Amino acid sequence: MAEPFLPYGRQVIEEDDIAAVAEALRGDFLTTGPQVGAFEAAFAEAVGAPHAVACINGTAALHMTMMALGVGEGDVCIVPSVTFLATANCARYVGAEVVFSDVDPQSGLMGPDHLAEALQRAGGRRVAAVLPVHLRGAVADLPGLARLAQDAGAVLVEDACHALGSAHRSEAGERPVGACDWSAASTFSFHPVKTIATGEGGMVVTADAGLAERLRLARSHGMVRPEGGDPWWYEMDSPGYNYRLPDILCALGRSQLAKLDRFVSARRALSLAYARRLEGLSPHLRLAHDPEWSRTAPHLLTILADFEALGVSRKAVIEGLARQGIGAQVHYIPVHTQPYYRRRYGDQALPGAAAWYARALSLPLYPGLDEAGVERVVSGLARTLGLGDRI
C-alpha cells in the first residue's frame, strides 16, 4: 500500500473540534452570536492582548487595521518583500503606496538596517505604517524596528500570521507575539496550514480600546446602532466591509486554541528532529536562521539550499519529492517582483530578498506529522539531491 502524501502543511482536526462545530450548528446563531466574543476573549488571553477582533481571514485583518489606523491616499507603508501578497496589498486597498524593504537572506526577516534603508527610499513622504512579518514564526527585531518607526512618525503593525505561539526574548523575559508591547496591532491567520485552523479566519489584537472599536466598525459595514434610537435604527458614518467571522468557525477556533500549547510543542519537536537529520547532509543545505531573540513557534520548516552547487534545480527537487509522496513549497516569491508592483514602481534591487528566494524550500511541518515522517522526508530529499539514502 502506498504511503500517504505528506503536504508541506495541513490542519489537525480532532473529534472534539468536530463536536464543537456540531454544537454551534445546533445553536441559535450561525453568525454574529456568542461564539465570536468567546473566541475573541480566549484569543486575547492567549496572546496577552487587552483586545481582540475576529474577522474572516488574515488578509481582512490587515485591511481592517489599515482602515482603522486611518492609512490612506498620500501615505506610505513599508513592507518586507519576502512575505505573502496580502501584506503589501492591504496598503494598496486603502490607497497608500508601498516601499519594499530588503530582508536578511538567512532568516527572511526585515531588520532595522533594512527598515532604515527603506525609510530613506520613502523620499520624505509620510510613512504611516511599518509592517514587519514574523516569517515562518521567527520573530522580527520588534524593539529595533519600533524605535525607527517611532522616529519616522509611523506606527508598527505586526503581520503575525505565521507566529501564533512565538515570543520575543530579552533579559526581561519572554513576551508573546500579540501582546503589542511595541506595536499598534498584530494580525493573525487561521488558514488550515497555520498553527490553529478555523478553515478561513483572522484576528487583530491591540492594546488600544479606540482602535479595537474602529476595527469592529470596519468588519461590519461601518454600521452602528445609536443608544436610544428606534429598535431597527442603524447609521453608517463611513463604509466598512462584511469581514465577520461566523460562529461556526469561531467554535472551531476556540476548540483549536485550547490545543495551542500542544500544537506548538509538536512543531518545535519536529523542527528539532529535522535539524538532527539534516545536519551533515550537505554543506550546501541548512535550516533557515532564527534570531537569538526569537522563541519561535515554527509555522514553516524552511531549508536554504544552494541548488547550483548541489547540481539540481529547485523545480527538479520539488518534482522529485512529489513523486515520493512528499509536498514542498516556496515561501515566498518576493512581492516587489510581481507584475503589478513592477509596473507601479519599476524594477528594484533587493539582494537579500533575491538570495532568500533563490534558496528557500519549505518541507512538511504540522502537528500530525511524526518523526518517522520527518525521516521519510529527509531521506527522500537526500535521494532527490543525489546524496544517497543518508538517514
Rank of each mutant, 00 (worst) to 15 (best):
G201V: 01
E15N: 05
F307Y: 09
L350A: 01
D290P: 07
T206A: 04
D370P: 10
Q256S: 02
A207E: 05
G210Q: 14
A128T: 09
S186K: 07
G137K: 04
Y274P: 04
A197G: 10
D237F: 11
A309S: 05
D28V: 10
L164M: 08
L115I: 11
V79R: 02
A163G: 10
A309H: 10
A179S: 11
V205R: 06
P351C: 02
L272V: 15
Y243N: 00
R26M: 11
F84C: 10
F188R: 00
R92E: 15
G280P: 06
G280A: 04
I13K: 00
A184C: 02
S271D: 12
G37I: 04
L142Q: 15
D16Q: 03
G9E: 04
A197S: 14
K259M: 08
Q11L: 15
W293V: 02
E213Y: 09
I318R: 13
L109T: 07
D306T: 01
A163D: 08
G153D: 10
L217N: 12
R244E: 13
A354R: 03
D113I: 12
N57Q: 08
S81W: 06
L385S: 05
T195S: 01
R214N: 11
R121K: 08
T32L: 15
L257G: 05
E235M: 03
P231I: 07
G165N: 14
A353W: 12
A138Y: 02
Y274V: 11
K259N: 06
G173Y: 14
G70W: 06
P351E: 00
A349D: 13
W232L: 13
V317W: 00
E235N: 01
A129L: 05
S238V: 11
C250S: 05
V264D: 10
G123N: 07
M64P: 03
M1F: 14
V193G: 10
I18P: 00
E158D: 07
R219T: 14
E279S: 15
G386T: 15
L148P: 07
T195H: 04
Q256M: 02
D181T: 09
H114C: 10
V139P: 08
V94D: 01
G153R: 00
R175N: 02
L260T: 09
G95A: 06
P176E: 05
Y345V: 03
A197R: 12
E279Q: 12
R214F: 06
